[in-house]
Design a binder for these strands. Structure first.
Lengths: 140, 140
DNA sequence: CAGTATCCGGTCTGATACTG
DNA sequence: CAGTATCAGACCGGATACTG
């Protein structure tokens, strides 16, 4: 939560997954103020969530764009989960405006699987803490 | 992000997945102040993320505990994704202290799948916006 | 135990203005 | 266009004290 638990980090990453790369486009799409956006982008570059790379259009001066890194690309699963959840619980049925599709435009979702890719029902999963001392139960 | 994008909501849900139900236990485990915890629990009950149910131990007065709802139970996938991500990028290898296991204590992870449960590589997925007007590209 | 009320300082935000 | 600087207000969070 310290890394990405603020109001904007995930929204900026989602923007990136939607294809946004330039300062102005983030600004236009997110409804964020420029100063805040500037600070967030900088912080996310520092965190290794974005990389700032130069590019140049014909005859224009050099510009910079913000691209995902492996670290933030791997965050996509979290965003997929969040999107599925919000489509189910926060958006009125039929009003969903965002989806995740595969290359054949079929919808995809997340499954919990074991190492052999066998699906594991959610209720058979447990979140455990590896505690050296017994101060906290490792079974739930 | 408006619903669960604050500092504490997801951490409280994680506590619930770890088995915590009572005010004092949240308080002890999370390092949160009582007033903030009180407010968050109340808000999460309002949001349908927790339900407050009475219980009574032998000879004690009635107490209340906070339990997950279907809405928050469905949030588990998001937390699994977040945990996998943070284990990979934020925790030094070998120092992970939390895991998700199935009923045979085998580790589980998230996979993106289509409706037939065929695994879909992340890079073949696209996040799209269903826009009525053409103001925002629906392809990425 | 399970909270609520109050205070107060730090953080985050957007608005505005400015720069190369 | 792509930011940075500044600023005032909202908001959040913890500490403390209090209640049934």
């Amino acid at each position: 939560m310290d890394q990405i638990g603020d109001k904007w980090s995930m929204l900026i990453m989602r923007e990136c997954f939607l294809g946004t790369r330039r300062f102005e486009d983030f600004y236009d799409h997110l409804g964020i103020s420029k100063s805040v956006l500037s600070g967030k982008l900088k912080k996310m570059v520092d965190q290794g969530l974005l990389k700032k790379t130069p590019y140049q259009n014909e005859g224009e001066r050099t510009r910079y764009e913000y691209r995902l890194t492996q670290k933030s690309r791997d965050f996509r699963k979290v965003l997929i989960g969040l999107l599925s959840w919000s489509n189910k619980y926060l958006v009125e049925e039929g009003n969903e405006t965002m989806y995740i599709l595969d290359s054949n435009d079929n919808p995809v979702h997340l499954e919990v699987v074991d190492d052999e890719l066998n699906s594991v029902p959610l209720r058979e999963t447990r979140m455990v803490i590896k505690s050296k001392s017994g101060d906290r139960p490792s079974f739930v």
